[in-house]
């Protein structure tokens, strides 16, 4: 089962927005994905793993322009939102995850084990980051993007995973396995 080798495929979104869940869904469906678990193994914050390359420090490699994109053509990799600022010109397909900002902030606090005393400021900054990155994506002619809402995907997996399935544009992958990969028990920062 393969993807187009002329395209770099990326799962993105703000940190703690459900990017690991998207990688998990793709991986379960047999979609080519690449990640390593050696430097950041699964933990209580991501019990099923982070699905990252370079121990999550891929952004550093992008900032230094040393990330080998050629090696990952036709394969999904995870690059969180800020890293997209440094994407060199190529052909990309990006699945971008969006989630309730309060849940993202809750999850960040849980991960750092520290209450964010500047939460209002952090909220504003990450909303701005999200908007800036989405604008960049929409502006670039070498990027095709699909926006997926994490909360809606958990509420209605079938409808949202169908969007992903259609976006990948291949009937080779296992749609049923992709839906079954969603573990609602891991939705621990739910806001009503």
């Amino acid at each position: 089962m393969t993807l187009d080798k002329n395209i770099n495929y990326i799962v993105s979104g703000l940190e703690r927005s459900g990017t690991s869940m998207l990688m998990q869904i793709l991986s379960a469906g047999g979609v080519p994905t690449s990640f390593d678990t050696s430097t950041r193994p699964p933990d209580e914050n991501n019990p099923k793993g982070y699905y990252e390359l370079a121990g999550g420090k891929i952004i550093n490699k992008l900032m230094e322009a040393t990330f080998p994109f050629q090696k990952y053509e036709g394969i999904f990799i995870k690059i969180t939102a800020y890293g997209l600022k440094y994407l060199p010109p190529r052909n990309y397909k990006i699945i971008y995850s969006e989630r309730n900002i309060e849940e993202i902030l809750d999850s960040m606090e849980k991960m750092t084990k520290k209450k964010d005393i500047n939460r209002e400021e952090t909220r504003e900054t990450f909303i701005k980051l999200n908007e800036m990155i989405k604008d960049k994506i929409n502006k670039r002619e070498d990027i095709v993007a699909l926006y997926i809402n994490y909360n809606k995907t958990l509420e209605n997996p079938k409808e949202n995973i169908k969007k992903i399935y259609d976006f990948i544009d291949s009937s080779d992958f296992n749609f049923k396995n992709m839906i079954e990969a969603i573990d609602k028990n891991l939705y621990r920062q739910r806001r009503k």
């Binding site: 940190e15 703690r16 950041r40 999550g56 420090k57 952004i59 550093n60 969180t80 800020y82 960040m108 991960m111 750092t112 520290k114 400021e121 952090t122 900054t125 990450f126 701005k128 980051l129």
Partner: peptide, 17 residues
Amino acid sequence: EDEEKVKDRLRALGYLD
């Protein structure tokens, strides 16, 4: 300034050196 705040947060979360 926003960019520096984002970088600080990403460092705290382990996404950036």
